[in-house]
Simulated scan of single mutants.
Amino acid sequence: MKPVLIVYYSRSGVTAKVAAALAHACGADLERIQDERPRTGVVGYLRSAWQALRHQPADIPAPVHRPADYAFVILGTPVWAGRMSSPMRSYILQQREHFRRIGLFCTMGGSGGPDVLSAMAELCNKLPFASMSLRQRDVLNDAHVPALAAFADELAVVRDSEAAAKA
């Protein structure tokens, strides 16, 4: 079994930056959720907010990596109108029965992170081993690095304690 998979959706690149840094820190495989319809421009932005507010899943292709092959799956999403992104909602609905342990993170321009993390955990029907919400401005100026390191440390502690319990 592989140790860690990080799955994320990113419209603007902010969530992608966090996912890549976390994958590097954890030695994880990385999977970007693709969207069947583009979300560029004003129309894409408005459609994104509308779908998020309505809890409407998006059309996404099948993932490349199988979450059942991993001990830990870390899920990352931007916050849209105080909700998780619709592509992440789709991924969770399609794959949640394959998650063993989860970690969660979100990026946000304003607020809503804790509510989004709670909604993700509820949709997964699992408690996360760790979670973090980051402000977009902190990600863009690299002020998120301490929070990212703490998240990676939490994963290492849980992974090491589980390995010790199996030995």
Rank of each mutant, 00 (worst) to 15 (best):
R96P: 14
C106I: 09
S90G: 07
T77H: 15
Q94P: 02
L46C: 01
V43Q: 10
S111V: 05
R66H: 14
R54Y: 10
L93G: 02
V116L: 01
R39I: 03
V42D: 03
G44W: 10
A119T: 02
Q51V: 02
Q56W: 13
L53Y: 12
I102M: 01
G76C: 05
Q51R: 15
N125M: 11
Q136H: 09
S85N: 02
P57H: 00
D69P: 12
M108T: 07
D69G: 13
A71N: 09
Y70L: 10
R137G: 00
R37K: 15
A119H: 05
E122G: 13
R100D: 04
R101V: 01
Q136S: 11
R66Y: 13
D59M: 14
W50K: 09
L127S: 03
S90H: 08
H65W: 09
R54A: 14
R96E: 11
M120H: 05
E97S: 08
Q94V: 02
G41E: 01
G113L: 02
Q51N: 13
T77D: 14
T40P: 01
S85C: 03
L75R: 01
G113S: 03
I102A: 01
S90M: 09
P128Q: 03
G103A: 07
I102L: 00
C106A: 07
Q51L: 10
E36Q: 09
G44C: 04
G82P: 07
V64E: 00
I74Q: 02
V116P: 00
T107R: 09
L104M: 04
G110V: 07
P61W: 14
F129P: 04
I102T: 01
S85H: 04
H55K: 15
R89V: 04
A68P: 00
M120S: 06
F129R: 08
S85F: 06
P114Y: 06
L134D: 01
T40E: 10
L117E: 01
A58K: 07
P114F: 07
A130Q: 03
A71G: 10
R101K: 11
H98I: 10
D69A: 15
G44I: 08
A52Q: 00
Q51D: 10
V42H: 06
D115K: 15
G82Q: 10
M108K: 13
R47A: 12
E97M: 05
A119L: 04
G110R: 15
L127M: 02
G82D: 03
L117H: 02
D115W: 11
N125F: 05
A119C: 07
L104H: 03
L134A: 04
Y45V: 04
N125P: 02
I92H: 00
P38Q: 13
P128H: 02
L123Q: 12
V43S: 06
A58R: 07
W80C: 02
L53G: 13
M108Q: 13
D115E: 13
M132W: 02
M132V: 12
A81I: 06
D115R: 15
Y70R: 12
E122P: 11
W50M: 08
L127T: 00
P114I: 07
L134H: 03
F99H: 11
E97R: 09
M84F: 08
R96M: 06
D115Y: 11
Q51Y: 12
E36I: 08
